[in-house]
Design a protein around this nucleic acid. Structure first.
Lengths: 218, 218
DNA sequence: CAGAGGTCGACTGTTTACAGTCGCCGTGTT
DNA sequence: AACACGGCGACTGTAAACAGTCGACCTCTG
């Protein structure tokens, strides 16, 4: 059946989406170092796709803030300085505060709490995994939080920022980046949401983000 | 000199940017009604550009949430319901709260206050103008607020939301949309920022956004 | 009449080709 | 030696062509 492929995540993505994913990974993994000029012909050959298809992917990457435009449309991998990382985390904090607050106001939070605890368990499971895996499970938790609000716009805004967040972590070094990802902190967030105390949840998120940003730029 | 053209805003934009602007206007003005299927060949002919160029613009529009993808990559003009408008305004409130709070924490706010008052004067000047002009000057004020923070990520996130905001106003009807745009309310915001009281500024913004959303979905 | 199959038309996904522009570098001039 | 100039190469902007897919409608068959 058709749904099987969908359930298994095997639906064949368009070349554009594959290219987009590949480029995102290449940038956030550091394979394409910050500041590097991205030559369309070069990349299209590298990814084995046409320039037209590549350009569509680049537009999306640009919107996500992973590449920035220079003179005459020349694109290059974005370079983040300390201030930009702080700025990114400010916006991230604002969005996730909204998420936490929204979740606090839901009448029935049991399902939400369950999903979040499952995400935390996934983090625990990856504690002794690679740094990349730990980052991944951490971002999963936060993305899940945004998704559970049911606010598509919020989720979309967060996902638009996700690339920048990844770059921030990568830029500061994965070791540093992972330092903020304690299970305890995330349990605090879930606990705050469980109480339904919106301002407590908001403050918990904010502290989490502030300390994360502080560690990253240190 | 080359700078002259730049200063006058006369630099020739790429066809993609022109197309993007044209499509944005067409959608937010209602010329392309919500739900309408956007046929690439049709639009490229209408705009007198090639499909490749058009597709790049469409990718950006998609990222901004003005068009949504259906089956097999079919794009259609996004249709907003009441919940989505509330959701959009929740995110907007979160972003602008951050903006207001950030401005409150600036050591020297005189320049900021001046720019914001100028934006309000522009609103006053358009009080008896067309509805579109009033919406424009209102959005200018809020965009300016985000820009003055110096947080490029915040500005970018807000601008990504701008199209959705415009659609919300358009969808609810311009008459309704304009109802929130009193000069007084905006003076309150500036006054709050001037005092430097971050939580006051935040609450002022939130109330402004909440009532705006309430009027729009009423 | 119902249903299987087949053709057609409308789109999107993707590639290839062409045009314009800017920087670089060698050459010739003063 | 310094500088103006002109050809060359590298890229991006734009257009046009090709390929695949899905639904609609029509037809043939039982």
């Amino acid at each position: 059946m058709a749904a099987t492929a969908a359930l298994l995540g095997l639906e064949k993505k368009s070349l554009r989406e594959q290219a987009l994913a590949a480029l995102r990974t290449a940038i956030t993994s550091g394979a394409l170092e910050p500041g590097r000029h991205m030559v369309e012909t070069e990349l299209s050959e590298m990814l084995q796709i046409s320039r037209g298809t590549l350009r569509e992917a680049l537009r999306q990457l640009q919107q996500e803030g992973l590449v920035s435009a220079g003179a005459r449309g020349r694109l290059s991998v974005r370079h983040l300085d300390a201030k930009e990382i702080r700025d990114i985390y400010s916006v991230r904090a604002a969005l996730e505060s909204l998420a936490a607050r929204t979740l606090c106001e839901l009448p029935d939070r049991q399902h939400v709490i369950g999903s979040l605890r499952a995400a935390i368990q996934a983090m625990e499971a990856s504690t002794h995994g690679t740094l990349e895996e730990r980052v991944e499970s951490d971002l999963d938790f936060h993305r899940t939080m945004c998704r559970l609000t049911g606010n598509e716009t919020l989720l979309h805004s967060w996902e638009s920022l996700e690339g920048s967040i990844r770059m921030s972590i990568m830029f500061a070094g994965l070791e540093k980046g992972v330092r903020n990802m304690s299970v305890d902190r995330h349990n605090d967030i879930v606990a705050a949401i469980e109480t339904g105390d919106a301002s407590l949840a908001r403050n918990t998120i904010r502290e989490h983000m502030d300390s994360a940003a502080a560690v990253l730029v240190a």
